[in-house]
Design a protein around this nucleic acid. Structure first.
Lengths: 245, 245
DNA sequence: CTTGGGCGCTTGTATAGACAAGTTCCCGAG
DNA sequence: CTCGGGAACTTGTCTATACAAGCGCCCAAG
C-alpha cells in the first residue's frame, strides 16, 4: 500500500498517524506489540524516513507509542487510571452558584468519523457523525469548552438544535434513558484553540474530562470537556454505609 | 551567535527552543511580538531551516508561539466546582494492572498544625498532627506523591507504621469505619519538590486530588495526591437505573 | 479612487542523505 | 562454558533542497 499526497489534502504524516491509530484501535496491534521500523514503513508506504519518523514521534508524544532508541517502536501500555463520578448539568451548577449561564456555539456540523472518533462511538470509520463545540460561560467568563461527537443514529436532529437555549446534555437526555457513563479525567496544557476559547494562559494546566454515555446499549456521544485549572475543579462527597476493606 | 552541537550533548533544536523561551520569559519578546522568520534564524544561528522549523513547531504545540502560514511567527497571547468518586487503594490498582507496587517514605513526622491544616482536620491550630509524604511507584516509575496529614486522635500510632509494607490508606481503614469522603480534583504544574519525586518535567500538568475522610464524625486525614499527567488519569464507569432528568 | 493581479515573503510538507547513539545478538577468543 | 567485541539494526538528529500554500503589499488597469 503506497500512500500518496494526491488531491486528498491531508498531509502524509497525518495519514500515517491515522493508519497506525486505526490498527491499534482495531486490536491488530495490541499493547506491547512491536511496530515496523522506520525503514520498513519507508518501504511499505512509499514515504521518506523523515515522514515516518515525524508520524511516530508525534504518536509517541500523544501517548500511543513508546520508542526506545536502538531497540524499536512499541504500542504503549495504557495509562494507569483510578476510579470516579456523577454527571451534572453545567447550567444547573452555575445557577446553583447564583450566576447566569450562557453558551456560545463555536461549531455545529456533520463530519466523517476518523479512526479515533469512530472507535469512541462504536461506529465505522468514515461514517457521518455530528460534531459540536460549545463554550459555556459563567457570567462573562468562559468556564468550559465542550467538544462533543454525537451518534446520528441516536440524535438525528442534533444539528437543528439551538444550544444557546438548551444544553446538549439536556437535549440528549430528553431523547432516551441514560444507561451508563464512562469518565476519564486528565490534566493537560491547553492548545491554541482552547486557550482562545477559555481565555487562559498557555501555561495554565487544564482539566480534561472525557465522557462517553450509553443509552439502550448505544453510544450516544463522546464529549471532551476542558476546564481552566485556575477557575475550575471537580469535587464531590460520598457517604458510606460500611468500612472500606 | 552560532549554535553548535559540540560536546554539549543537547540537540540543536532544543537549544533553539530554550533560547526562545528564555527571551520570552525575560520579557525581551513580549506577547504578540513577531519572531524572526525561519530563514533569519537559519542565518543568525547557523542552523538548517528544518531545525529551526522543528523548534518553532514544537514551541507552538507547547503554547509559547502562534504561527500563521504566510505571515509569520508570534509570541502567543496570553473557583467553581462539579461532581465525583470512589476511593481505591493504589496498591490494589497497580496490582490489577499486573505491576509491582512499592512505596518510598519521604517524610514521617509530627508537626504543629498550621491554620490551613487545622481547618482541614477540624482541630485547633498549633495542635500536633502527623504528617507523611509517600511516593508510590508502579515498577520503577513514581506515579503518585501522597502528602497526608493525619488526626492523632484517630491514629495515635501512625508514626510507628511501616508504610513500605502497608499503605496509609489500608492502615487507617483498619482503625475504624469510613463514613464519608470529600474529593476535589485540580490541575496544576508541579513544584520543584514534586518534580523531583515524580521525575516529571516542569511543564507537565499534574492532577491534584485532595481528599478528606471521616470516621465516626471525626476527620481522619486530609491527603493530597499528586499524579503526573502524562502517566496517570482518573477514570470510572457508572451504571444508571433511570434517565437523568 | 477602487479593484484585482502578481510578486515576494512566510510557513507547511516532503525527500534523500548523512552521521550519532543505543540495543540486540552472534561468534570467536579464552 | 563464559565473556567480550563487533556487526547489524533501530531510533535521534541535522542538513540541503524542493515545492505547496497562504498572507500582504504594491502597482497597474479601470
Amino acid at each position: 500500500m503506497i500512500l500518496r499526497k494526491e488531491r486528498s489534502g491531508t498531509p502524509l504524516y497525518k495519514q500515517v498517524k491515522e493508519r497506525i491509530v486505526a490498527r491499534i484501535l482495531a486490536g491488530e496491534w495490541p499493547q506491547g506489540q512491536r511496530l515496523p521500523s522506520e525503514n520498513q514503513l519507508t518501504g511499505d508506504l512509499g514515504i521518506s524516513r523523515m515522514t515516518a519518523h515525524r508520524a511516530l514521534r508525534e504518536l509517541t508524544g500523544e501517548g500511543w507509542l513508546t520508542r526506545i532508541q536502538g531497540a524499536g517502536t512499541y504500542v504503549a501500555e495504557s495509562k494507569a487510571q483510578s476510579a470516579l463520578m456523577e454527571i451534572r448539568n453545567i447550567r444547573e451548577e452555575i445557577a446553583e452558584r447564583g450566576h447566569t449561564h450562557s453558551c456560545e456555539v463555536v461549531l455545529l456540523a456533520e463530519e466523517k468519523a476518523n479512526a479515533e472518533v469512530a472507535h469512541a462511538l462504536e461506529i465505522d470509520a468514515g461514517k457521518p457523525v455530528y460534531h459540536s463545540v460549545l463554550v459555556h460561560k459563567e457570567g462573562r467568563q468562559p468556564i468550559q469548552v465542550e467538544d462533543r461527537h454525537v451518534n446520528p443514529a441516536f440524535a438525528p436532529n442534533y444539528l437543528k438544535q439551538d444550544f444557546t437555549r438548551v444544553t446538549a446534555f439536556e437535549y440528549l437526555g430528553q431523547l432516551g434513558p441514560l444507561d451508563a457513563a464512562e469518565h476519564v479525567i486528565e490534566a493537560l496544557l491547553p492548545n491554541e484553540t482552547n486557550r482562545g476559547l477559555l481565555r487562559c494562559h498557555a501555561n495554565e494546566p487544564c482539566l480534561l474530562l472525557t465522557r462517553r454515555t450509553w443509552s439502550n446499549g448505544l453510544v450516544v456521544s463522546r464529549v471532551r470537556q476542558i476546564y481552566p485549572g485556575s477557575r475550575y475543579r471537580l469535587a464531590g462527597r460520598q457517604e458510606y454505609n460500611q468500612a472500606p476493606h
